[in-house]
Each structure stands twice: as C-alpha cells, then as structure tokens.
Nucleic acid binder design. Sequence first.
DNA 1: CGAACCCTTGAGATCCTTCAATCCATGTGG
DNA 2: CCACATGGATTGAAGGATCTCAAGGGTTCG
Lengths: 234, 234
Amino acid sequence: MKQQHFNQPIEECDLSLSSLFKHLTPEEVEKIILEKTQSSYKKGTYIYHEGNRITGCYLVMSGILKIFKTGIDGKEQIIRFAKPFDIIGFRSVLSGELACTTAKTLEDSTLCYIPQESLFYLVKNNGNFSLELLQLSCRELGEANEYITDIAQKTVRERLAEILIHLKENFGLDGDNVLQISLTREELANIVGTATESVIRLLSEFKSDNVIEINGRKIKLLNYKALVKIANFN
Amino acid sequence: MKQQHFNQPIEECDLSLSSLFKHLTPEEVEKIILEKTQSSYKKGTYIYHEGNRITGCYLVMSGILKIFKTGIDGKEQIIRFAKPFDIIGFRSVLSGELACTTAKTLEDSTLCYIPQESLFYLVKNNGNFSLELLQLSCRELGEANEYITDIAQKTVRERLAEILIHLKENFGLDGDNVLQISLTREELANIVGTATESVIRLLSEFKSDNVIEINGRKIKLLNYKALVKIANFN
DNA sequence: CGAACCCTTGAGATCCTTCAATCCATGTGG
DNA sequence: CCACATGGATTGAAGGATCTCAAGGGTTCG
C-alpha cells in the first residue's frame, strides 16, 4: 500500500504533477502559469457555493476538500472529496451552469485557480487536453452511477462499510492501519446518506465485531476482508 | 407544453437534428455519414451490456431506451432514459472503461451506431464538438449529483412524485394529460429505488388524493401543483 | 468556566420491505 | 375453444431497518 502525504505545502504550482495538465505544450504551460493564481486556505473555508456562478476551476495542490450538495433541511450530501491534483469546479464552468455543489476545505489547503478563459482555451486548442478532460468527466459519471445504485439498493450498514473501503483506497492508511482522513460522524453520515446516530451505532457494531477500532475520529481497519464482506459487493 | 412524438421512423439519419452533431463541418458530416450504421431494434432488445467492452456509441433516432445498472440480486437500477437525439454509450467509449450500464429498448427503436474511431477523430479535431460533448457529460454529471442527493435524503413518496414530474418534463403528456411513456410498476420502482409494492401503494395513494388517475400503465396527471408539493423540492 | 461542538445511548415511532396469496390479461398448445 | 402458463398488478400482514427525539457526556477553546 503506497503511503500518501497530503500536507506538505508546495512552493510552486507544478502543473506536470497533474495527469490532466501534463499533456500541455511548453507554450501552453507558460500561458497557464501566467493566468493562474495560487492561494492557501485555512481549514473550513468555502471555496465556492452551490447556486453561485463560478469563474474558473481549481487544481488542488495540497489539502483535502469536501464537495457536497445541500438537500432537505440543509442536510449536506457529500458527493466526493478532492485531494492533491484533483481538479474541482470544472463541471460548472464547462456546462455553463451555476455551481451545483459547495466546496469546503477539510484541512488547510493550497489551490491553484485557473480562470475559465484559460480552461476554454485549452479545450478548444489542445485535443489531447480536451480528451483527457472528457475522460475525467466520464469516469466521474461512471462513479456517480455506481453511487446511485449503491444508495438506492444497499442497506446503510453495507454502504458504511463500502465508504470505509473507499476512504482507504483514496486516502490510504498510516503505518498503523488508521484511515488517513479525519471525518466527523456527521460527515460520514452525509456520505452514506443516513442519520449521524445510525453511523455511530454501526461503527460500534463494527467495533464489537473486531472489524475496526475507534479512537475519536481515528478509524483503524482491523479486518479488511470482513469489511469487504459487509459491503456486499456483488 | 410542446407535444412530443417519438415513434415516427426516420428514413435517413439526419445528424443536424442532434445538438451535438450540428456543429460538424460539411467534410466531417460526410465522413461520419460513411462510417455510421443505422439499425432498427425491436422493443426489448439489449443494445449493450454492463461489463462488456463497447466499440462505439449510439445516437437514438427513434424510440426510447432505459439505461440501467444491475445491482444486488439482479435488481435493476435505472440511471436514465434515452430518447431521440440522445447519445448513449459515449461514456464508456471515451473513458476507455467497460460499459458500466446496460441499454435496452423500451419500444421499437432506430439507432445510429458511431464507431469509436469516428468519435475520437471528432473530439481531437473539432474543438467545438469536444466542447459540446464535454458540456453534455458535465450536465449529466450535474444531474447524477442531483439524483444522488435525492435518493439519499428524500422519502420514497417524495422521489416517486419527483420521478413523475421528470417523466412529464422529458417525455411530455398527450392531449389528455397522460404521461407519454409507458413503464411497468417494477420499472418505476427501479428508478425510484424501492420495492414494486411500494410504488403500487403510493400510486394508489396519489390516486385517492386525486393527484393522478391510473389506467393500467397510463398515468394521468390531475394535479401537477400537488405533485410538486409532494416532491418537496427545497 | 461556560459555550460550542461533537459523540453516545435509549426508546419509540414510522417508513418501507418482504412474503404470501390472489387477480387479471395475454398468449399458447392441445 | 379450453386449459394452462406467464407476467404483471394488487392487497394484506408482519417484521425490521432506520429515523427522530431527547438526554447526557466529553473535549476544546476563548
């Protein structure tokens, strides 16, 4: 399992680290470097809000963000997370729609703002770039379809186990098998699509069954096989 | 409300009717016309299967298809429908992944097969086309996010009302306010993400409340306002 | 040392599913 | 033409998963 370190501040926004931007020509890189703006944000900062028009997208250089929609009674539904070298906000920019989600930092983060003009320029002039971006959005669409099916058909218990697996795959474990992302119970509930209390009860069950160990927000995976079994992949 | 007629067979595959293909240059149109293949399919035909590799995408010329994933115990989760001038299968082609859904005709349909080479050619060489396609997939992504939030947070009752509204918006009503798409109770359940019996019970409730009228698979909308209220848009 | 925030637990309510039985329309083979 | 099979629609009853509400405990931080 490869270790992942997200929190080192990155001095210069190195576009070649992003699988999306690494196909740019040197001239394009030059152009984008001039047009982008890199900024740091404290944990808990909103980057953009659902319903607002956004004027560009962001490349995550360090930190983690949650991307969510606000549903009934203000309850958040977390759609996905963004980690270094993920790009956020491009959906709304490209579709020309208002932001359909809100983005908020879960840790201190550094983002590289890319104005929409730059993005459109690349899409129109670099076939490889637009293909890459198209592939990215198509993959995200595939994941969204998966998510829909899971939420519609699986029990809360199964979904919670599945989310823990996803979190492991996306953010990794530290040397002690502890998930490298720290979420509140409420946030876990807002991914799974359930009540906070249900998450708490299910986590305790997993704990009694020796599948996980809990220490505050640290979740240690004790029995990955069991977790996979609970998740009931078909 | 504009009337929609889907069932007229179309003699020649006219690409200009599709918002996606209308931006092609005359040379590109010529090229695609040569490379595409138009075919008709009986109701109930599978166009492609989840898990298979597909070699091109399809432009719907006439008919309606359901696009679904197969979840737990083979239960279908309908992700969306496709109607004339919708394009299906492009997600898997572009992302290079296996099909993540199955496509099946709900009526006799005519489809225009466009091989992946043609699609890639257009994406790489026509910036407007790739932008248009990018916008399409971004819009679909937005809809998927919406769907996720709804399924995660709304009750079955609310979702069923919402689906009826969606069906009205996408397929229209006939002169007698009857939904222009005919679905089994099970299919309705597979959109909403619930049990068939629940759909039946809720439809009868809507009927007792004079919100709809039911005649077999014909669903007549009697009180649209009430339906919107039940759907509980926030 | 409050205040704010998060976590936990219990109890009751409720929504929804599951299972089982029946009905009905349609189609098919004898 | 009848008997039967098939697939969908319907209804009832029972059980279970999950939510809501309420209360209490712990931690952090100004």
